[in-house]
């Protein structure tokens, strides 16, 4: 699958680097990301500070690393939450169909009518700010889209021969759903998850950029972007390095998603 699949190769490479930075950022950064130093304010990138320093003399690279960790973690949790609930709802409705399916899907349609960022905004306004509320809000906001994909897959597989024969052999519904069908839908679900991850990154960045996402001392890439924007003239490296990191993070995963879809064909 990897061979000859450019998208997958480049995607994996970028994602790999970013992931290493994210994991590393959890345990170690070159400087304390929140340590202020009035002697080193607004320093341009150099060997000492490869991404320069910000208005408080903090090391931008350390902050970027911390920021990737936070953004990454929030997005992962969001996807995990959205997918877990989405798969269960999608599987049940897709497999059993009927009136419950009709009602749930109608509600689902209605919910997907709200763009997910708006939905997250509403949830945040109900729950309050902070890291965990962002995860919860985005997770809930992403459930319908996963549920929809999973549902259509299950509805398709329900009528296939292998499911029919499993049913004849007396397998329980639960077993058919999660042991027989689910693994067969991975080719569709996996790219959806990867794309979902990207949407989560974008949504988290937007929320934090708007100032209603994570709070200090937490650092996320979106939060940093809103911070750094004020200093664009005096410290352009701050905004550029932060922005470029977000781009890289999203680019890596979108190439990965692309590659996975191509590998399926």
């Amino acid at each position: 699958m990897l061979k000859g699949n450019r998208y997958l190769q480049i995607g994996l490479a970028i994602t790999g680097v970013v992931t290493v930075l994210a994991v590393l950022g959890l345990f170690w950064t070159p400087y304390d990301p929140s340590a202020m130093n009035s002697a080193e304010m607004y320093m341009a990138p150099s060997l000492r500070h490869i991404f320069g320093t910000d208005n408080f003399g903090r090391d931008v690279f350390s902050r970027v690393m911390k920021g990737i960790s936070t953004t990454y973690l929030i997005s992962l949790c969001t996807v995990a939450m959205g997918a877990a609930v989405g798969v269960i709802v999608g599987a049940l409705t897709g497999y059993f169909g009927g009136i419950v399916d009709d009602i749930l899907m109608r509600v689902n349609d209605a919910v997907t009518a709200f763009p997910s960022i708006l939905l997250a905004l509403v949830f945040i306004s109900l729950l309050g700010f902070g890291k965990y509320n962002v995860i919860l809000a985005l997770g809930v906001a992403f459930v319908p889209s996963y549920a929809r994909v999973v549902r259509s897959e299950f509805a398709r597989h329900r009528e296939m021969n292998y499911v029919k024969s499993a049913r004849l052999m007396g397998a329980t519904d639960r077993r058919i759903m999660f042991v027989h069908i689910l693994p067969n839908t991975r080719a569709v679900i996996l790219p959806t998850l990867v794309i979902g991850f990207n949407n989560a990154v974008l949504a988290e960045a937007s929320l934090s950029y708007l100032g209603i996402g994570v709070r200090s001392p937490d650092v996320s890439l979106g939060y940093m972007l809103s911070e750094s924007q004020s200093y664009m003239a005096t410290a352009p490296w701050y905004v550029l390095c932060t922005g470029a990191t977000i781009v890289l993070l999203i680019l890596g995963f979108s190439l990965l998603g692309e590659g996975l879809q191509q590998g399926r064909r």
């Binding site: 960045a205 950029y209 972007l225 922005g243 977000i246 781009v247 979108s254 692309e258």
Partner: peptide
Amino acid sequence: GQITMAVPPFFTGILLTYLFGL
């Protein structure tokens, strides 16, 4: 195109403001 898709609109916005505005 692939790269453009990865740039969040608000980051593009920041760059545009700077380049064309300032």
